[in-house]
């Protein structure tokens, strides 16, 4: 239960870290250490035996939460090393990405979130983790850097499989950008786990925007813990567009997503069939809550606005 020997360095800038990552270690695996709440247990079990550990915890530039405005609206920018607990208590996250704010308390326990980072969870890409599914629902953009340059990858193209992402070996996730939630949007996150703080048996995230007459103009539905990677239910989303959501429709949409768009495995925690059952219920509930929140948001803006 102790890590195998490794070399350790703690750069203070992103450039320094990228240089180390590019040089690497020809003999051994190189790992970036973020919050260490998944990597260090794996090292203690010796499932991971990196030869070189590049600790990102001294890089201040990666740890900030920022907002900016462009023509389209506000953008929330989370440095990859923002602690999950910092995001959980951030007023900017609550205001601009309420779905993320709602999901964060479900990420393990306070003691883990105090150390675990937003970027670390995404780069680790555990299909049972909350944040990948949330980023998929939020259409987040992942900013990746290497000594070769910088690129942005949509969340939909970032998660490739079990613990697998679009990150090249010399690349680092440096920031996540999220477009601010629309004022007339409703969202909801919910998961089912055996005990508080456990990995979820299944979870769902939903976002809905409605017209003034209640017609759905935008929908996102994503799942965690129901496949090898976080899943977006594109067909279910299509079924909602142009419709006025009601209980029967939401039930049909949720059933479709759970039957056709996910591929849950069986393990000691839950069977595939039970996960599908949970996914259907969670999809229906998160969509229903998102719809009622979107409806309430409309009411609020109608009262606040002059006329329309």
């Amino acid at each position: 239960m102790k890590p195998a020997p490794f070399r350790y360095c703690a750069p203070e800038t992103v450039d320094e870290a990228l240089e180390l990552l590019a040089t690497g270690d020809p003999e051994d695996e190189v790992k970036l250490l973020a919050g260490g709440q998944s990597l260090v247990p794996a090292m203690n079990f010796r499932l991971a035996r990196p030869g070189l550990l590049i600790d990102l915890n001294r890089i201040a530039e990666l740890a900030s939460i920022a907002t900016r405005d462009d023509a389209e609206g506000s953008i929330l920018r989370l440095g990859a090393m923002v602690r999950q607990s910092a995001a959980e208590h951030s007023p900017d996250v609550a205001r601009l990405a309420p779905l993320m704010g709602e999901a964060l308390p479900s990420v393990a326990h306070t003691q883990i979130r105090n150390r675990g980072t937003v970027g670390g969870s995404l780069a680790h890409a555990d299909p049972a983790a909350e944040l990948p599914a949330v980023m998929l629902a939020l259409d987040a953009r992942m900013h990746l850097r290497s000594v070769r340059g910088e690129r942005a990858v949509d969340a939909g193209d970032f998660f490739l499989g079990l613990f697998e992402t679009a990150l090249e070996p010399d690349e680092m996730l440096t920031a996540i950008e999220i477009d601010a939630a629309s004022a007339v949007e409703g969202s909801c996150f919910e998961e089912v786990s055996r005990r508080r703080g456990d990995y979820a048996l299944a979870g769902a995230a939903a976002r809905v925007r409605l017209d003034a007459d209640g017609t759905c103009r935008f929908a996102r539905l994503t799942f965690l813990s129901v496949a090898d990677l976080p899943v977006r239910a594109l067909e279910a989303e299509q079924m909602l567009l142009g419709e006025r959501p009601h209980d029967e429709l939401l039930r049909a949409v949720a059933e479709h997503a759970a039957r056709r768009e996910i591929d849950p495995g069986s393990d000691i925690h839950a069977s595939s069939a039970f996960r599908r059952h949970l996914a259907a219920g969670l999809a229906r509930r998160t969509l229903a809550t998102a719809v009622s929140r979107a409806t309430a948001a409309h009411g609020a803006t109608d009262h606040g606005g002059a006329s329309s």
């Binding site: 239960m1 102790k2 260490g36 709440q37 260090v40 247990p41 203690n44 079990f45 607990s85 326990h109 306070t110 003691q111 883990i112 105090n114 150390r115």
Partner: peptide, 21 residues
């Protein structure tokens, strides 16, 4: 020693964390 039981919890700069991780 893998962050589950919480026995090793202490305060790092005021925040409760697992010292085994």
């Amino acid at each position: 020693e893998h962050g589950v039981c919480g026995a090793c919890t202490l305060l790092l700069d005021g925040d409760a964390v697992r010292s085994c991780l």
